[in-house]
Amino acid sequence: MNRSNEDKIEQFYKLVEENMDNGMVYRDAIELAAVTVGGLITAKVSQAMAKYQEAIHPQSHLSQEEDKDTLALLSMGVLWDNKYFNPIEPDVSIPLENTLAESIYFIMKYGREEDGLNKALEANANTIGDVALRAEAIQRVLGKA
Rank of each mutant, 00 (worst) to 15 (best):
E89V: 06
L79C: 02
N98K: 05
D81L: 13
Q53S: 10
V92C: 12
E54P: 03
E89L: 12
I94R: 02
K68S: 05
K83V: 13
D67A: 09
K51Y: 05
Y84H: 00
L73W: 10
L79G: 09
S63R: 03
W80N: 13
Q59W: 00
A72I: 13
D69L: 05
L100T: 03
I94H: 12
I94D: 07
K68P: 05
K51S: 06
E54M: 02
A72P: 07
D91Q: 13
S75V: 11
E97P: 02
Q64P: 01
Q64D: 00
K83G: 03
N86T: 14
K51A: 12
I88R: 14
L96W: 05
I94K: 11
S93E: 15
S63M: 06
S60K: 00
L96F: 05
E54I: 03
V92L: 13
I88E: 14
F85I: 02
S93C: 04
E97N: 08
V78Y: 10
L73S: 04
P90F: 14
L79P: 10
P90E: 05
Q59F: 14
N98D: 08
L71H: 04
D91L: 14
D67H: 08
K68N: 08
S93F: 09
S93G: 08
H57Y: 09
L96I: 07
P95Y: 03
D81S: 09
E54A: 08
S93W: 01
I88K: 15
Y84C: 02
L96M: 09
T70R: 01
E54T: 00
L96Y: 09
K51M: 15
V78L: 14
I56W: 06
E65H: 07
D67C: 01
G77F: 02
M76W: 00
Q64N: 02
L73H: 09
L71T: 01
E66Y: 02
E97C: 04
K51P: 06
L96C: 08
D69S: 11
E54H: 07
E65P: 01
F85S: 08
K83Q: 15
D69V: 00
W80Q: 07
K51V: 04
K83P: 03
L71P: 05
S60G: 12
L74A: 03
A55S: 15
Y84V: 01
Y52R: 03
Q59K: 15
K51G: 03
G77R: 03
V92M: 11
M76S: 05
L100N: 07
P87Q: 01
I88G: 14
Q53D: 04
N98E: 08
E97W: 06
P87T: 06
S60A: 10
Y84L: 13
P87S: 09
D91V: 04
L71R: 09
W80V: 06
L100I: 10
E66M: 14
P90H: 14
S75T: 10
V78T: 00
I88C: 13
